[in-house]
Design a binder for these strands. Structure first.
Length: 803
RNA sequence: GCCGAAGUGGCGGAAUUGGUAGACGCGCACGACUCAAAAUCGUGUUCUUUCGGGAGUGUGGGUUCGAUUCCCACCUUCGGUACCA
C-alpha cells in the first residue's frame, strides 16, 4: 500500500498536498462535531474571542476576548491558530542514529542499536508535522458499531483509541510554588496514595530534584530516556526508579508523600505524572515492594491479602469521607470534592496520540509549506501546487543531520523563504488512494463529486490485522475529514472488512558483536555480547551464510570479520511476516514460470482459510497441478483429440455437478476458497471415474471454475465452441432436485462412540429407527443383554444409545 | 507487559446449528505400466494393540446422551504496540 516513488506520477501526487492544505486550513468544532474552515474560527475570535469556543486544541491554549485578539501581533495570532489547526508542527521524540545521521522507525531499532549497521540510537526531540487525529477520537470509536468489521478488529481500534473517564488532580510540591497534575481513572483510591511518580521525560524534573539526589536522578534519566517505550512497557518485571528528594501533598489528606522518577510512567500518556496506589495497581505494588514504600489498603477484602491488588473494586475502607462507599460512588464523590475545592476536575482521557506526519526521508511528497523569518509556517497557494521534490546529489541526510531535502541547492520559495524539509509518510497516500482510483484522470480535484457518488465507499476491504491501528485508523480519520468538509459523502471509507492472514517468511539472522564489526555464528552466541541483525534469505542456504555475498551486500559489512563454528557461519532463523524490511521475501515468478498463474492462484487459495497466517511453502503445489491436468483430460485425450460429446447426462453426473455448484456458491459467499478447491478436485475425480465427457456437464463446471482458474477455463471454453468470453457466461443455477437423497446412513453410537452404521429411509419415523437400531446385531453385542438407559435419534444426523 | 488472533496425522488443512474427527491435497510405502526412469494409474497411510479393543483435535478442569465446536484456568506461536504500512 506504500506510495513511495512519488514523483513518477505527478498527476496522482499533486492532490495530496491539497489535502494537507485543507487540513491546515481547518479546525475541529466540538459543538457541531465536525471539521470547519479555520477562517470561520478567526471570525469568532474577532467577534468574541475564544472563551465560548469548544474545539480541539492544544492543552496550553490561552483564553482571550475579542479586543485581546485584535491587540495581538500577527505572529501571536498565527501561533494561537496553530494550536487549533488539524495539522501543526510540534516537537516529537524520534529515534536518532548519529552514526547513520538519520531517524529510525522503532522496528529499525533493536535493543538501542540500529538494525542496519548496529550503531547506537538515542531518543531526540525534533520538530515534526502532526495530524490532530485525537479530535476524531470519539467518532472513530463510535462509528465502529455500524461497520461490518470483525469484533476483534473493532476491539483493537477501540482499545488503541483508549477512551477513559477519570479526573485530573493537582498535588502541591512541598516548599516549591509548583503543582503537579496527574490523571487518574481511580480517584476513589486517593487515600491509598503513598508516593508519586514522574516520567523521566518530565520537564520539571530538574527543578524538583534536591541537590543531594541530583547526581543519581540525572544518571537515571540518561539511561531511561534512551529506552524505547516498548521496552519500558514490556519489562515490567525489572523495577527501576529513583527518589527526587521532593515531597508532594495529597490534596485530600494533606499528607506528604515522596516524589519519584520511574520509567514505568510514560510521558506520552496522561500528564506524565502518576499518583501511586500500591494497594490497587500492579505496577505500583511491584514498585513499592521493591523500594520498601508503604502500602495502604483502601478496599474492603484486601486487608489480609499478601497482594492486595488481587481485589481492585469494592467498598472503600480507611478512606476518610468516602469510607463505606463502593468504588463507583467513591469515584463520583472524589471528583465532586476535588472540583468544589479547586484542585481537580473530571477529565476524559485518550490513549490515542496525535499522529506524527513528518518523515526525514527523500522519497515522500514534499510538505507544501515555507517559513517566514519569524519561523511561522505558511501554505503554498493552491495554484503553485504541486511542490515537486527537488533534485539532490544524494538521497541521504546532510552531515549535520538535516533531512535529505536540505541538500537541494537554492531550494527556496520565491528565492527567499526556506521550505519545510521533511516529507510526508506512506500513510499520507495510503489513506485516500481508493478515492483517487475512482477518478484517476481528474486534474481539478482529488476526486470528482460525480465519481464519488457513483462508486460510493469501498464495499469489501480485504486487509491484514497488521493495519488495525495504523493505516485503517488513519484512513478512517482522513476520510472523515474529507466528509466533514464536503469532498466525499460517506463518513466511513470501508463498509465491510475481512482480515486475510499473512504469508509469513522464514527470516535469517546474524549476530554482530556490540562493539566490533565481527559476526558470531549462531551456535556460539551465548559466549558473546551480540545484537541480532537480519541477513537476506537469498544469501543463506540451509541456514548457512554465504559470507562473500553478505560482505558484498552492504558497504558497512565489506570488512566484517566472522567467528565460525565447524568452518561455517550458521544463521539463526525466525518465522514472521514476509516483509522487505525483514529481508525474507521470495517472489512467485519461478512458480508461475513452472506451473502457470492459474495453478499458483488456486494453490494460494488451497493453502487454508483466508484469515489464517502461515509460512510460504510450495510443497503441495503439485496436487493443484495434477488437478488441472485431470481437468484437461476430461476435455482432451493424450493425442490432443477433443473428447467432448453431446449426450444427455445421467442422474449421477448431474448429482456430481450440482453438489459442486452448491458448495462453491456457499464457499464464495463465506470467502472459503480452500474448500472450493477441494470440491473441484472431488468433482473432477468423480467425473473422471464416470468417464463423463458430456458438454452439458463440462460447460457448467467450467463457468463455476472460471473465477478460480480463469485462463484454463477460458481456453477450454473456447474449445467447447464458444466465441464469447467465459466471463460473460451466466452462472449455473443450482437445482436441488439433482442432489436429493431418500435415505441416510446413520452412524450408530453407543455411549457417544460410533460402533456401526445403518441405512434408514428418510421417511422412517424416529420410533421405528430406534426399534430397528436396538435389534441390530452390533448394538445387541454392546448392550450385553442390558436395557438401554436412553436412545437419542436425531433425524438426518445420528442415533446414540446410552447404556 | 498490554491489545488481537491461532493451536487438529509426518505436513497444508476439512468437519452446516454441539452429532461419524482427519474430507481434499502433499509426503511416504507397496503394486501396475516400462529395458529403465519420468509421467500416469491402483491400494494403503492418526497413534497404539494381546486384533476384542484402547487412546486421540496445545495442557488441565467443567457442562452434555454426545465437545475440534460451549464455559473456566493455563501454555505456545503469530500480528500490533505509534517513523514498515
Amino acid at each position: 500500500m506504500g506510495q513511495r516513488s512519488t514523483n513518477l506520477r505527478p498527476g496522482l501526487l499533486q492532490m495530496d498536498p491539497m489535502d494537507f492544505s485543507q487540513l491546515f486550513n481547518s479546525f475541529y468544532n466540538n459543538d457541531t462535531n465536525k471539521a470547519e474552515p479555520i477562517a470561520s474560527l478567526i471570525e469568532i475570535f474577532e467577534k468574541e474571542g475564544n472563551s465560548r469556543v469548544v474545539a480541539a486544541c492544544d492543552e496550553d491554549t490561552p483564553t482571550f476576548d475579542a479586543s485581546q485578539w485584535k491587540a495581538m501581533s500577527e505572529l501571536t495570532q498565527s501561533t494561537i491558530l496553530l494550536k487549533y489547526r488539524l495539522t501543526y508542527p510540534a516537537d516529537a521524540l524520534v529515534n536518532w542514529c548519529p552514526e547513520l545521521g538519520t531517524v529510525l522507525a522503532n522496528d529499525e531499532v533493536k535493543d538501542g542499536f540500529s538494525e542496519r549497521g548496529g550503531y547506537p540510537v538515542e531518543r531526540k526531540k525534533m520538530r515534526q508535522w502532526m495530524m490532530r487525529i485525537t479530535a476524531y477520537a470519539d467518532r472513530l470509536t463510535n462509528n465502529l458499531e455500524h461497520l461490518n468489521w470483525s469484533e476483534s478488529m473493532k476491539d483493537m481500534q477501540t482499545n488503541w483509541i483508549g477512551k477513559s473517564f477519570g479526573c485530573e488532580l493537582d498535588f502541591k510540591v512541598k516548599d516549591k510554588n509548583i503543582a503537579l497534575t496527574c490523571f487518574t481513572t481511580r480517584p476513589d483510591t486517593i487515600f491509598g496514595v503513598t508516593y508519586m511518580v514522574l516520567a523521566p521525560e518530565h520537564e520539571l524534573i530538574a527543578e524538583l530534584t534536591s541537590p543531594e539526589q541530583r547526581a543519581e536522578v540525572e544518571a537515571y534519566i540518561q539511561k531511561a530516556i534512551n529506552r524505547s517505550e516498548r521496552e519500558r512497557m514490556a519489562e515490567v518485571k525489572t523495577v527501576s526508579g529513583v527518589f527526587t528528594g521532593s515531597y508532594v501533598t495529597n490534596p485530600f489528606t494533606n499528607e506528604q508523600v515522596p516524589l519519584w522518577v520511574a520509567d514505568y510512567v510514560l510521558a506520552g500518556y496522561g500528564t506524565g505524572v502518576v499518583m501511586a496506589v500500591p494497594s490497587s495497581d500492579d505496577r505500583d505494588f511491584r514498585f513499592a515492594t521493591h523500594f520498601g514504600l508503604p502500602v495502604k489498603r483502601v478496599i474492603a477484602g484486601t486487608e489480609r491479602l499478601e497482594n492486595p491488588t488481587e481485589i481492585k473494586h469494592g467498598n472503600m475502607i480507611n478512606s476518610g469521607f468516602i469510607t463505606g462507599l463502593d468504588s463507583k460512588e467513591a469515584v463520583k464523590a472524589t471528583i465532586e470534592h476535588a472540583e468544589k475545592n479547586g484542585f481537580g476536575k473530571s477529565k476524559v482521557n485518550y490513549r490515542l496520540r496525535d499522529a506524527v506526519f513528518s518523515r526525514q526521508r527523500y522519497w515522500g511528497e514534499p510538505v507544501p509549506v515555507y517559513f517566514t523569518a519569524d519561523g511561522m509556517p505558511h501554505l503554498l497557494p493552491n495554484d503553485e501546487l504541486p511542490l515537486e521534490l527537488p533534485p539532490v546529489d544524494e538521497y541521504l541526510p546532510t552531515a549535520s543531520g538535516e533531512p535529505p531535502l536540505a541538500r537541494a541547492k537554492d531550494w527556496l520559495y520565491r528565492h527567499k523563504y526556506p521550505y519545510e524539509l521533511t516529507t510526508m509518510p506512506g500513510w499520507a497516500g495510503s489513506s485516500w488512494y481508493f478515492l483517487r482510483y475512482m477518478d484517476a484522470q481528474n486534474d481539478q480535484a482529488l476526486v470528482g463529486e460525480e465519481a464519488v457518488k457513483y462508486w460510493n465507499s469501498v464495499d469489501l476491504y480485504i486487509g491484514g490485522t497488521e493495519h488495525a491501528t495504523g493505516h485503517l485508523l488513519y484512513s478512517r480519520f482522513w476520510n472523515m475529514f474529507l466528509f466533514d468538509r464536503g469532498f466525499v459523502f460517506h463518513e466511513e471509507p470501508f463498509q465491510k472488512l475481512v482480515n486475510q492472514g499473512m504469508i509469513q517468511g522464514r527470516s535469517n539472522t546474524v549476530y554482530k558483536l556490540k562493539t566490533e564489526n565481527t559476526f558470531v555464528s549462531f551456535g556460539l552466541i551465548a559466549q558473546y555480547d551480540t545484537i541480532e541483525l537480519y541477513a537476506d534469505v537469498n544469501m543463506v542456504y540451509n541456514d548457512k551464510l554465504d559470507i562473500e555475498a553478505f560482505k558484498a551486500w552492504r558497504s558497512e559489512y565489506a570488512d566484517a570479520k566472522f567467528i565460525l563454528e565447524d568452518g561455517e557461519y550458521k544463521c539463526g532463523f525466525v518465522v514472521e511476516k514476509m516483509s522487505k524490511s525483514k529481508y525474507n521475501t521470495v517472489t512467485p515468478d519461478a512458480m508461475i514460470e513452472k506451473y502457470g498463474a492459474d495453478c499458483l492462484r488456486m494453490y494460494e487459495m488451497f493453502l487454508g482459510p483466508i484469515e489464517l497466517s502461515k509460512p510460504w511453502n510450495t510443497h503441495g503445489i503439485d496436487g493443484v497441478a495434477k488437478f488441472l491436468r485431470k481437468l484437461w483430460a476430461l476435455f482432451y485425450d493424450n493425442e490432443g483429440k477433443l473428447l467432448m460429446v453431446n449426450e444427455k447426462p445421467r442422474a449421477e453426473e448431474y448429482k456430481v455437478l450440482h453438489k459442486t455448484i452448491r458448495k462453491v456458491e456457499q464457499d464464495i459467499e463465506n470467502l472459503s476458497f480452500n474448500t472450493s478447491v477441494s470440491e473441484f478436485m472431488i468433482c473432477v475425480n468423480a467425473l473422471t471415474q464416470l468417464k463423463c465427457h458430456k458438454k452439458a456437464i463440462l460447460e457448467e463446471l467450467l463457468v463455476v471454475l472460471s473465477p478460480f482458474a480463469p485462463h484454463i477455463a477460458e481456453e477450454l471454453w473456447q474449445a467447447l465452441g464458444h466465441e464469447d468470453s467465459i466471463a460473460l457466461a451466466p452462472y449455473p443455477e443450482f437445482n436441488a432436485a439433482f442432489v436429493e437423497e431418500d435415505e441416510f446412513e446413520y452412524p450408530i453410537m453407543i455411549n457417544g462412540k460410533m460402533r456401526t452404521k445403518i441405512t434408514f429411509s428418510l421417511e422412517k419415523p424416529s420410533g421405528e429407527i430406534e426399534a430397528e437400531t436396538l435389534e441390530n446385531e452390533v448394538v445387541q453385542k454392546w448392550l450385553e443383554g442390558k436395557k438401554p438407559k436412553k436412545v437419542i435419534v436425531v433425524p438426518r444426523k445420528i442415533v446414540n444409545v446410552v447404556v
